[in-house]
Amino acid sequence: MTETDKTVKTHKTPEAEDRVKIKARRVNVFYGAAQALFDIDLDMRLNQVTALIGPSGCGKSTFLRCLNRMNDVIDGCRVEGDIYMDNQNVYDETLDVVELRARIGMVFQKPNPFPKSIYDNVAYGPRIHGMTQNKEQLDHIVKKSLRRAGLWDEVKDRLSDTGSGLSGGQQQRLCIARAIAVNPEVLLMDEPCSALDPVATAVIENLIHELRQRYTIVIVTHSMHQAARVSQKTAYFHLGELIEYGDTSDIFTRPQHEQTEAYISGKIG
């Protein structure tokens, strides 16, 4: 089963490629009195990587954190509008936010492994969600997740070592393994490579390519090159507004909006 996992090829029809996984409509976010996002409408498609780009403070991270309701824990943050995942409203009162976050995994800007062993880092999610009956199943999930995150061969002999002893790039891949261990449908990445060197970044970017087969990925990035390399769709944010959205190749070659052009050509940002 483990070996076949790796070799799954996705031959999706164009319609399936274009199926919308997450749909945001008229999303407004306020921090206290200040408004951070203005009427964002955005679709994120199944098995695609959607890149959110834009200058600092443009609201791209805020938008990302709306998707799995991480903004809930920020005092004074208020979200208006609707976000649907598979036609279910994420902000529905009856929706269990814990379950939502299990379905939408998240990888953060700075690698943040728990100060526990590598094994426990990955096993934590499956454990709290009761995904396994016994140790063998848990071992299997840990192995599978680490393998998918491309970390297995590097850490298989020291699973009981603490996660913070790994290098930055390894830590970030450990965080990815931890996120995919609970088998999410969507993976949110908040500038996952900003704390990494170019080599580690390349490893993560290759990983994103592979992960796309299985998950819907939304990635916030400061690097336009990275957006161009890893994403199929790109959304350009500026001062809390969605300026332009389209196929990545179009955005970078034929930007429709002058602000987008200015940003990707390096005039602002």
Partner: peptide, 10 residues
């Protein structure tokens, strides 16, 4: 970051 990591896995 630890708080967010834990919240992030549900």
């Amino acid at each position: 970051s630890i708080r967010e990591a834990a919240l992030g896995v549900g």
